[in-house]
Design a protein around this nucleic acid. Structure first.
Length: 375
RNA sequence: GGAGGGAUGCCCGAGUGGUUAAAGGGAGCAGACUGUAACUCUGCCGCGAUUUCGCUACGAAGGUUCGAAUCCUUCUCCCUCCA
């Protein structure tokens, strides 16, 4: 049921399981790249990881990134992207592309939409025009974009949502997931279902079971990192990940901090994405093995040392903290690139180290929490 | 020589008798950011005790008034225009 015309858009193989945790070492193969998992996927909403070029991504070892169907549908338009030959050609990126449907925008652009069983009516944040998004229309959009992996449209309630609101969102997400499956027509795109359920463990279990019964190529945990506490994130992920199909990739959407990634891996998650490394980079917050630092702090003014002594990225091997602070304080555009390179390298290197540890059976959650700079 | 305008907290700049420690910017100092409407947002920002408190402040000195950055006098400095 998960294939169209008998061809598999992606393959996923578990190479090794951790003896002491639920962590898995795996290999995800798409038409565009071989992705070692657990993996962190940089977010490039508008067919661009902000401040970086595809060459930067290649040098960082990012084999798969995220784009956003809702944003690209509005501008430049998915039909336009299709004319260019799909996202990879449009943005000249050689790796794999996973597109989020716009489900998150149902949450983040709450003031601009109305939701019912049919779909979501959005008022464009760009020009105020109205758009009706349905599970079917977003299948079309993502197929036009040429996604390697596409996400179903889901309803993502906020972290503090009441139980009945979460239950209703689950119900809708299930119905929409079925409609997405039925609407698929492009064999090259893989589809991931999304589990909701908020912070309620019984609802998470119920929805995980429901979504797992549908024929998807991968399964995502959604509705996380939308306002809950770090403890709730860890608890829900630990509870939900093992409920997803063993042999398919598990994707924790929108998470998270370096520590969240370590805990997610230990819970059995294979894929992560988050705006944190890139957005926080642009806002001057940089991740190091000693914890995060705010480069604009006065104490960095005269520090003639690298951002992170143990880091081998271009930024750390070339520039001092004092210089980076100077660039940030003066809003020099180069800062955004250098900071994004470093933060992304921090995330990707953390994941690479985790994979190496899984490979030689030495993955230790607590040890990696320290490595992640968690205080 | 004549006429007029102006001097406000680190900087710019509102305010023309009380609710003004004094709007708003900027700078400075911190913090936040989790499927990106974000090179964004928040807090602090005269000094000192630190919850309602005290002190010092709007070029300088003096005066009017219950009360002044705001009104009057003199002085200092700056700017514009006319000779």
């Amino acid at each position: 049921m998960s294939t169209i015309n008998g061809s598999e858009p992606i393959s996923f193989e578990i190479l090794k399981s951790s003896g002491t945790t639920a962590a898995r070492l795996g290999k995800l193969v798409t038409a565009h790249s071989v992705v070692d998992t657990p993996v962190f996927m940089p977010v490039g909403t508008l067919a661009c990881v902000k401040a970086l070029t595809p060459k930067d991504l290649e040098e960082l070892g990012a084999k798969i990134i995220l784009n956003n169907a809702y944003h690209l549908m509005l501008r430049p338009g998915d039909e336009e992207v299709k004319k260019y030959g799909g996202l990879q050609k449009f943005m000249a990126y050689g790796g794999s592309i996973l597109t989020d449907s716009g489900g998150f925008q149902v949450f983040s652009l709450e003031g601009l939409r109305k939701i019912n069983d049919e779909g979501v009516t959005f008022q464009s944040h760009l020009d105020g025009s109205y758009h009706t998004l349905t599970p079917e229309s977003l299948v079309k959009v993502q197929e036009n974009l040429g996604s390697d992996i596409a996400m179903v449209l889901d309803e993502c309630p906020s972290g503090g949502a009441q139980r009945d609101v979460v239950a209703k969102a689950m119900e809708r997400t299930t119905a929409w997931a079925k409609r997405c499956v039925a609407a698929r027509s492009r064999p090259e795109s893989a589809w991931f279902g999304i589990v909701q359920g908020g912070t309620y463990e019984d609802l998470r279990r119920e929805h995980a079971e429901t979504i797992s019964e549908l024929p998807f190529h991968g399964y995502a945990i959604g509705g996380v990192s939308v306002g809950e506490s770090p403890e709730d994130i860890a608890r829900i992920v630990r509870h939900t990940a093992p409920l997803l199909p063993e042999g398919r990739p598990r994707y924790l959407m929108g998470v998270g901090t370096p520590a969240d990634l370590v805990r997610g891996v230990a819970a059995g998650v294979d894929m992560f994405d988050c705006v944190m490394p890139t957005r926080n980079a642009r806002n001057g917050q940089l991740f190091t093995r000693e914890g995060k630092i705010n480069i604009k702090n006065a104490r960095h003014k005269e520090e003639q040392i690298p951002l992170d002594e143990g880091c081998g990225c271009y930024t750390c091997t070339t520039f001092t903290r004092a210089y980076l602070r100077h660039l940030f304080v003066n809003r020099e555009l180069t800062f955004y690139r250098l900071a994004s390179i470093h933060n992304l390298n921090f995330y990707l290197e953390l994941m690479a180290d985790i994979r190496a540890a899984l490979m030689n059976d030495s993955f230790d959650e607590n040890q990696f929490l320290i490595r992640a700079g968690a205080s």
